[in-house]
Amino acid sequence: MSSALVLSGPPGVGKTSVGWRVFDRCTDLGQAPAFADLDLLGAAWPAPDDDPHQSRLKATNLAAVWSNYVQAGSKRLIVAGVVENQRERRQLEEATRGPVVICRLDAPDAELAQRIHDRGREDGADLANLVARASELSAQLVADDVSDYSINTAGRTIDDVAAAVLTHWNRAST
């Protein structure tokens, strides 16, 4: 059984919300889960010119966090974060010392834009830039697909998406 699931996708698709719900379900099933958010593990400034999205830092920090989680008794890792290419996938596999299952979450651009607006964290130019980035990244993640499976989150509840993610993860892990 693969011990690591990565929820990838553009901003606004629900990676963190779905990740927490998958974590809750794994807890209820006695699977000893742990949760990590790559955005938080890479929240350092400035980013190096050769790694503008801090993928190396995120992987390095994930390795340390996962090691600590394992020592504390965790058996399964749920990670929320964007995986744009095979290099980033390999970094995460090195960090978790094994294969990862990547689930790409998808939603139409209009829904992503609405969710980003609704969460109210950004405004002005930052909001416009994030909405544009979500649209660009959504198309890129489909074109350069490194996921094992994808789930459309449009019009679905977090519970419904989490159930589908967990079903696919369990299937991909056997």
Rank of each mutant, 00 (worst) to 15 (best):
Q114F: 10
T157C: 05
N170S: 13
W169K: 00
V101L: 10
G120S: 07
K75Y: 00
A32V: 00
R115C: 09
A132K: 15
R104I: 03
D148C: 08
A134P: 08
T174D: 06
S74Y: 09
D28W: 05
A128L: 14
L62H: 02
G30I: 03
P48C: 01
V161C: 07
V65A: 12
L5E: 12
A164S: 14
R56D: 11
L77H: 07
T60L: 07
V146H: 03
R89A: 04
L112I: 14
S3K: 13
Y69S: 06
D144Q: 13
G120D: 05
A107C: 12
K15Q: 13
A110V: 06
V22W: 08
R119N: 04
K75H: 11
A36K: 00
R121V: 07
R76V: 15
E94S: 12
P52A: 03
E122M: 11
L130V: 07
P33R: 02
L38G: 03
G9R: 00
A36R: 01
A163F: 06
S135Q: 10
K58P: 06
L40G: 13
S67D: 15
F35H: 11
V161F: 02
M1V: 09
E136R: 12
A4S: 15
V18D: 04
V142D: 10
L41N: 04
D106N: 12
G9K: 02
A43F: 15
V65K: 00
N129S: 13
